[in-house]
Amino acid sequence: MATSINSTANGYNFKVVLLGEGCVGKTSIALRYVENKFNDRHISTLQASFLNKKLTVHGKKVNLAIWDTAGQEKFHALGPIYYRMSNGAIIVYDVTDYDTFQRVINWVTELRKMLGSGICLAIAGNKVDLEKDRRVYTEEAEEFANKTGAMHFHISAKLNENIEEMFFQLTLRMIEHADLMEQKSTLSRTSSIRRNVVVVEDEAEETEPTKSSCCSGSSHTS
């Protein structure tokens, strides 16, 4: 499905969404990563919500499209529109604010439910430069990340700590995932691209056969 678009002969195209409560520093992270600037007046981009980053991993060109999302609680319901078809998600919380971590838990649960393992997740505890005000404990965050199969990073957009590393690790994982999907799709060339797919249940295995029967029905008639 998505992978057929994402990996071309000369590289990969990945879509990464930034999720998390407002004011946790999603935009700062993206700007730090792409422009290496923080709260700077000389930021060259007009906007900080859609950024492209090109990098080369293992000799292959990777283009990351980083999508910032509106973090306000009232826009939470719009999440599915944002993360649809994305290869990776970085869910950001503020280490000094426990409520933001609560939202991370919600996001990750929702993402896993909606997209299953089709998306690579990275949980990022931002603002570690304010270590003294920490409210979210490392053990708890890491345990949660392990449980949900997500990576966990402690970062600071202000001090440029670990941000490069986080994106790099996420990219590696996405490449791995894309290659795996490519193999799968070549093995069983199922129905073409499946757009607008919304998985109804989180038990992907259960719904899978029903879908295939449905699809075969439609392809049969067409």
Partner: peptide
């Protein structure tokens, strides 16, 4: 400054 998605949407 560059606006973020929080302001854009």
């Amino acid at each position: 400054g560059p606006a973020s998605a929080d302001e854009f949407l």
